[in-house]
Write a protein that binds this DNA or RNA. Structure first.
Lengths: 335, 335
DNA sequence: CGGCGAGTGTTAAACGTTTCAGCCCTCAAC
DNA sequence: GTTGAGGGCTGAAACGTTTAACACTCGCCG
């Protein structure tokens, strides 16, 4: 590969001049600039960004650490992040952790060694996550989707509490009173917030909280099915259930149908996330949408702002959630 | 950030020695090695990989260029690629093109400037794609999912032809004779191969090919719905349809249900890909599975082999597809 | 006792950029 | 004719590593 020196030789100038025309960082007279450009063509010159990075101390690269890029939710966030990062001049290195804390810190180390300019991190929920975030030795980091306690950092999260409240209120308004809830693992904040929203709304409606109606899932499709089985086996099963994410909602619908129930006639099910396929499940899923793509773009913006200005005050973005009504919820037949 | 020089100073040795213990690339006596390790601790040393890369001419990074990382299929491929690459010591930079040729070449240039050691590329189907692949100036590249004509390169593709044959034969075996097909854009090879498999099998079964039963889609969910509308509006609609991917199959099911038909009783629909949610649609989707994750891991393997040995003969991996029978296909009521 | 090889350490060049400091012009002003 | 200013270009240091080449110390053998 041709180097800047080859270009300089061909053009009959110094490497400094070549650099100046490449980066447009100082006036160069027109005849010379032309000769340089021609020489670049001729030698098929591609600037070596790693040499550049070494010199200027910036790689124009950020790291994305997420549990699973194949998960519809994270995939969408990642897409938003990549798009916006690119338009801001940054590339992104993708790292999957499956929520494993040891892989999280391994990737953090790796990325720091690679001299990324910043990190966006969807942390697993364990209580040491905060300390991992703090271990970046000054590399800017923004935390997405999950709130981490006890640490000052840029954050972008969806308004999960409000979302769960909207979902529950919607079911109440339809006339349901016996409403179940399939939660996620309690140590990640979105999951906890959604469960909280459900509880809070039920209480506010003057309904006593039946703990047997609250089943713990793990955000995977399958667990929604199991939870639904448990709920249906109850002496007095719920007429509606709020699932804390779409995958579990879909699993729940699947199980309900297999049990011979009709959704929404016999049981209403509402999800959370609004993943792409929620619109085309059968029945189409009523759910509360998270601004997944926007979470990615906002994270990118937040991160490059911080890279530009490391001492700016920390910011926390709370993005709105939205109820999207489709066909998986209806008025109960026997209220 | 501490440099190797800081470590050397603290340990009272030369930077060479520090480098040797870090990389374990030459014997160093135990007492010295210990002093060095201690000094690394003390200074909280993180090796600077961009300096290293500049020196050794390797970044241990590969680029992934795909249409859309949020698409379930590509997301899974990407996941496989990232996992395997990481275990082979490589990081991956993610680039989304939405199938836009100009973005494809822009990303290729960017990644080359970043000195990636290799590229994996899911090309858009346009006929200049091959020349883009050839424009990497010697950077190893492996092409995934889509066959590119007129160019020698490592490839990993699924056996789409065989898959489509299996799908069509399955419907024939169930007793269908009037079978429709929703294809994708014809200029990408998987799409073309699937349509070919369908045609070929119908002909082999001695059925005349009714071109009105073949509708062109675009692999998006919505287009499956439109195609289904067209098919249902036919004077003599098909009793079964093979959709060339799952998204279109799901769209088709959705439309069929909306039209009051029951799947599979009134119309059978088979998909292609076996994306994650195919198992939990209503009804669960019968489809032919592609080894998506494996395509990613194989691509990673192929690429690092080529990086190791640039003059090895080119290889083409044809990964098997597999019929997975669920509940969206059945024997026709009126054959 | 001279010399040789093995073992362990250091010196310094090289990787390809960017950018500071300085040099050489030219030209205007006096 | 001298001076000063400023425009345009170059030389070379620096970024943080790796690694070839060399230096020193032993122990051993002829």
């Amino acid at each position: 590969m041709a180097t800047i020196e080859d270009v300089a030789r061909v053009a009959g100038v110094s490497t400094a001049t070549v650099s100046y025309v490449i980066n447009d960082t100082r006036r160069v007279s027109d005849p010379l600039r032309l000769r340089v450009l021609r020489a670049m063509e001729e030698t098929n010159y591609h600037p070596n960004n790693v040499a550049r990075s070494l010199r200027v101390g910036q790689t124009k690269t950020i790291g994305l650490i997420i549990p699973d890029s194949a998960n519809a939710f994270f995939a969408e966030v990642g897409r938003g992040l990549q798009d916006r990062s690119h338009s801001r001049g940054f590339s992104v290195i993708l790292c999957n952790t499956d929520g494993d804390p040891s892989r999280e810190s391994a990737y953090i180390d790796l990325l720091i060694n690679k001299q990324v300019d910043g990190l966006v991190f969807v942390a697993s929920g364990d209580n040491a996550a905060s300390t991992r975030v703090a271990s970046t030795h000054g590399v800017p980091i923004v935390v997405v989707d999950r709130h981490l306690a006890g640490i000052e950092v840029d954050e972008v999260v969806a308004d999960n509490l409000k979302g769960a409240i909207m979902a529950t209120e919607y079911l109440l308004k339809l006339g349901h009173t016996r409403i179940g809830c399939i939660t996620g693992l309690s140590d990640v904040s979105p999951s906890a917030d959604r469960a909280k929203g459900y509880r809070q709304t039920m209480k506010a409606a003057g309904l006593e909280l039946d703990e047997t109606l609250i089943i713990k899932g793990d955000f995977q499709c399958r667990s929604g099915g199991f939870a639904m089985q448990t709920l249906l086996a109850l002496p007095s099963p719920p007429t509606a259930v709020v699932a804390c994410n779409d995958l579990m909602a879909i699993g729940a619908i699947s199980t309900a149908c297999a049990a011979g129930l009709r959704v929404p006639q016999d049981v209403s099910i509402i999800g959370f996330d609004d993943i792409g396929l929620a619109a085309v499940t059968n029945p189409p899923l009523t759910t509360v949408a998270q601004p997944k793509y926007a979470m990615g773009t906002v994270a990118a913006d937040l991160l490059v702002e911080r890279i530009r200005n490391p001492q700016a005050p920390y910011r926390r973005w709370l993005l709105p959630t939205e109820l999207v009504i489709r066909q998986s919820c209806a008025t109960p037949i026997r209220p």
